[in-house]
Amino acid sequence: MGVLAYILGRETLIIVNPGPSDPHGDPTGQDDRTIVPGCNVQPAGSNEVLDGRDTVTTRMRVFAPSWAPVTATSRVEWNQQTWHVEGSPGSWSDPAGTPHHLEFLITRTTG
């Protein structure tokens, strides 16, 4: 397979993982930021709550290369906004068993 077989989309994400922290959980260093090109981001629904204020939670489904350093605690910068990873990413393999891509949800809440 050529390189083009592994390009899932045209979106570039920045995966942000928390940096080191002290025993109390306070940050002691900078976050780790990784640029991940070749991603696909698709709408996965939204939810609106009108209880004293208008709160909207938007979800997007992301398909990213298998090497992307995404965990349940990662943040994602995409489309000039910061999103949070929801749950643990799922890993998909090709028919030969080689890791091919990751699939995960990102959420953003406003209001």
Rank of each mutant, 00 (worst) to 15 (best):
T55G: 08
S46M: 08
V56R: 05
T58N: 05
R53S: 15
G45T: 02
A44R: 06
R61A: 00
A44N: 05
T58S: 01
V62Y: 00
G52I: 08
R53T: 11
R61V: 02
R59M: 06
V62N: 03
V36L: 00
G45R: 03
P37N: 00
R53I: 01
N47P: 09
V41E: 01
G52T: 05
G45M: 02
R59I: 00
P43S: 07
G45V: 02
T58K: 06
G38L: 06
P43M: 04
R61T: 03
G52S: 04
T55P: 12
I35G: 10
V49F: 12
R61G: 00
R59T: 03
Q42Y: 11
R59K: 09
T57S: 04
D51P: 05
Q42H: 07
Q42N: 09
L50V: 11
N40R: 12
P43E: 04
G38I: 07
T55E: 04
C39N: 02
I35F: 09
T34I: 12
T57D: 04
D51Q: 14
P43R: 04
V41N: 00
D51E: 13
D54V: 14
I35H: 10
D32Q: 06
L50G: 14
L50M: 15
S46T: 13
T58E: 14
T34R: 06
C39P: 10
I35T: 15
R61C: 01
T55V: 14
T34A: 04
V49S: 13
A44P: 10
T55N: 12
D32F: 15
E48F: 10
S46K: 04
V49N: 07
P37Y: 07
T34Q: 02
T57I: 07
T55F: 02
D54E: 13
E48S: 14
G52Q: 10
T55I: 12
R61H: 04
N40D: 14
C39V: 09
D54S: 05
E48H: 10
T57V: 04
N47S: 15
N40C: 08
V36Q: 07
D32S: 07
E48T: 12
E48L: 09
M60W: 05
S46V: 05
V56D: 10
N40V: 10
D32T: 06
P43Q: 14
I35P: 12
P37Q: 01
P43N: 03
G52V: 01
T57L: 01
T55M: 05
E48A: 13
V49Y: 09
T58A: 07
N40T: 04
A44I: 11
G52L: 05
R59A: 05
E48W: 08
C39M: 05
T58R: 10
N40H: 15
T57P: 02
G52E: 01
V36E: 04
M60I: 01
V56C: 00
E48C: 13
V56I: 08
V62I: 00
P37K: 00
D51G: 11
R33V: 06
R33G: 15
V41M: 02
G52W: 01
C39R: 02
D32I: 11
S46R: 15
C39I: 12
N47D: 12
T55R: 01
V41H: 08
T34W: 10
V62A: 02
G52A: 07
R59H: 07
R53K: 10
N47M: 13
R33N: 08
